[in-house]
């Protein structure tokens, strides 16, 4: 489970009250890091859970932060909505140190949420979760006709593609002309 701190006010995660009885060797205490999304809500996540994210794992691997330093320097992911980051953190916690199952049925059913989740997961480079998300995207069109797929996935028609391409060329031409004119002005 993740602990969510609303700004800086929420409760700290519960510490284990009893030590394991049969521990053969003293366990290295798990380190924790802090992340927040667009909504600034800070999530405390263990380094083990964050290993799922190649991006964050790369960021933290050489930091050697103390608990206080980590708390004072949460990783900001301003491009990720708070509820999406929460989903990602929950998934990482649930699958910490475990082999990932072949399917994950807990992904969001709403298409907007799934879209944002795919973008976030891709950005954070969480390979296994991205695989689940892509399967979910594929399942959206299971048994659908070409017309239905075009509608669900908002695929532009050939005419729309051509118009967009023309428009892009026109814009690129204008920008190039503008740059030439500016360079000529500078030269004068």
């Amino acid at each position: 489970m993740s602990s969510t701190e609303q700004g800086t006010s929420s409760a700290a995660p519960a510490e284990p009250t009893t030590a394991p009885e049969s521990a053969a060797a003293p366990e290295v205490p798990e380190s924790f890091y802090y992340v927040h999304g667009k909504d600034k809500v800070v999530h405390k996540v263990s380094a083990g859970a964050l290993q799922h994210s190649a991006l964050i794992h790369g960021m933290i691997s050489n930091l050697g932060y103390t608990e206080e330093q980590a708390k004072a320097n949460p990783f900001p992911f301003e491009n990720i909505d708070g509820d999406i980051l929460q989903m990602v953190v929950d998934w990482c916690n649930q699958h910490k140190g475990k082999p990932t199952p072949p399917e994950d049925t807990n992904l969001p059913k709403q298409k907007e949420k799934l879209f944002d989740l795919v973008l976030a997961v891709n950005y954070l480079e969480i390979k296994e979760l991205l695989t689940y998300c892509c399967k979910q995207v594929a399942m959206m069109v299971k048994g659908k006709s070409p017309e239905e797929i075009r509608e669900i996935w908002m695929i532009p028609t050939d005419a729309e593609d051509e118009a967009a391409e023309k428009e892009a060329k026109k814009r690129a031409g204008k920008e190039a002309a503008g740059e030439t004119a500016a360079a000529a002005g500078d030269a004068k």
């Binding site: 907007e112 892509c134 995207v137 594929a138 959206m140 996935w153 908002m154």
Partner: peptide
Amino acid sequence: MSNSKFPLLNLPSEVIDRALKSMDR
């Protein structure tokens, strides 16, 4: 899955390829 739409082509191209590869023939 809700009835709203999903702008597949707004995803990064490598993600689109991955989703397409997950699909049945």
